[in-house]
Design a protein around this nucleic acid. Sequence first.
RNA 1: GUCCCCAUCGUCUAGCCAGGUCCAGGACACCGGCCUUUCACGCCGGCAGCACCGGUUCGAAUCCGGUUGGGGACGCCA
Length: 489
Amino acid sequence: MTEVRVRFPPSPTGYLHIGGARTAICNWLFAKKHGGKLVLRIEDTDTERSTEESIEGIINGLKWLGLDWDEGPYFQSAYAAEHLAAAHRLLSEGAAYKCFCTVEELEARRQEAARTKSDYRYNGACRDLNPEELAARETTGLTFVIRFRVPRGEGFVAFKDRVYGGIEQAYRDIEDFVIVRSSNLPLYLLSNVVDDIRDRITHVIRGQDGLSNTPRQILLYRALGAPLPVFAHMPLTLDHKKAKISKRNHGEIVTVQYYQERGFIPWALVNFLVLLGWSPGDDREIFSREELIAAFSLEGMTRANAIFNHRKGDPKFFTDPKAIKINAHYLRTIPVAKLAELVKPALQKVGIWDEAYEKDRRAWFQRTLELIRERFHTLSDFASLGRAWFADDFSMDETALHKHLGKYPQLKEWLPELAERFAALPQITPDEAERISREFAEAHGVKPGIPINAARMVITGQSKGPNMFEIFAHIGQDKVVKRLRAAGQ
RNA sequence: GUCCCCAUCGUCUAGCCAGGUCCAGGACACCGGCCUUUCACGCCGGCAGCACCGGUUCGAAUCCGGUUGGGGACGCCA
């Protein structure tokens, strides 16, 4: 059996679209699963959009997701001559022909067709020019495009898509499409096929929007005498209004970079994305890298388009709730050492990273992460909600503060008093903290929750969090004492 | 308009190919409960779906036809 070779061919837009990421993930998984190769090919034929930065945006997105490739990046623009050569070969073999119709003529016909609501297709005006006519036009220096000569007659192109099954399209429904522009530049349909042939791609796994291009591409493969790859189209991801998700209409939410900035764990995003339009056939939803590779198959692909469940402006869910849920799951289950690596950039970003967290404070840091990760959803939460653990300047939720301290104005005196009890300890342990807290509450005739939650507020800035006795013992005696004392003001 | 494709809870989906074991299973979200000094996690429970019509069959979410709805493609864009 020949080696499996798949490719991911993004056009350089400056960012990696989550739909593109999904395509990349599936190709990557397929390659890994079959011990094959993944080729990265930048389709930069549209030179205006292809800048150094726009290419880097794609590459960085892939790298961040942890997707690696075996060959490339190749650049489509580097092969323009090859694409052209293929076109000229088709021309000389009669599989393609020169068309001298002008864009104006074509456009007029197209509009006429639209007006009469009738079907438009190139009328084949130049398809059968005789040698004299052809020579006459060539000598006048008229510009021309090269069109592919689609077979006429009753036949049809049929192929078996690995996801959608048997697909067929009648020749009569395929027009003689242009493969080379009048500026002598090759067009996507041709370039793509020529590149795939050269790169020996065995499986074309792409979005369903490529499905209707497939019959024309198959015609090209045939004319070029190349073996057909296996085609597998995957459903698209749409928004709530069933429209394709795009940066233009949905903003940053569709870019991989957005999730990076918002504190997603790369693999969590991969895990979420792969579930959009694919399922292992059983109830599993969380996969390690190895598990996913083992479980992945084209057969598990859904045929219906998936909807990216994002409600614009939702304060609780800034993206699809399931994506957040999966991220939170990884947040609290990955090895803490790994988590530490991921949290580091989040803390650095807001300037509260301490080098000691990787040296003598390493154990403390990791224990802290263990303590607080349970209720966080993103890596960014460590820097925001968890800020009090790593810095002394943290803000307090005013309404929560009022709720916990307002009912008992005496807490202003009580908390500094509690501070002294903790200060008197040689070292705070959870048990000691609990004993002191309960005794203290009893001494003042209130329920333990009153001073405990008030202390939580002033020590962590949050009304919610881990077991308070653990916090007393772990956050540091100096911080406990200082913050409780400061509650006096 | 033409061609291609699709259709199970609000969302992601299992089941469909090989019809009965499905008065449809899981997850997210939502609602209730337990746990608890708080919040979360966790656990327990609940809400909610086979688009519609017809056919085949003893029996259809599953097969067939149609209707409706949705998506994609119809460029000298990729």
